[in-house]
Amino acid sequence: MKQATLLWLLLLALTTLTTQAATLSAAAGLTGSAVPLVLLAALIKGRVVIDRFMVLQHVDGPWRWIVLGWLLLVLGLIGYAFNLNPT
């Protein structure tokens, strides 16, 4: 359970980090600059939830990749959409 506790703290730290980074970049008028960082943090957080909290990391069959693939596809397309018309 020590591992789960450390992962929980990691998730909280990533949430704080991305929120602060986005707030600072918005205050500086740097629209779009935080997108890669925020999406990467969401990917890491999502993977922790999928692999460790849902315990899908070593599950046989396609199950893990269905959920992880969903996360990768959605975040990838969000990143693409946010670069379609940068301001």
Binding site: T18, A22, A34, A41, A42, K45, L71, I78
Partner: peptide
């Protein structure tokens, strides 16, 4: 975890 950055953070 996806909804929060998408709607509240990303710009």
């Amino acid at each position: 975890i996806v909804l929060f950055p998408l709607v509240y953070v990303l710009r």
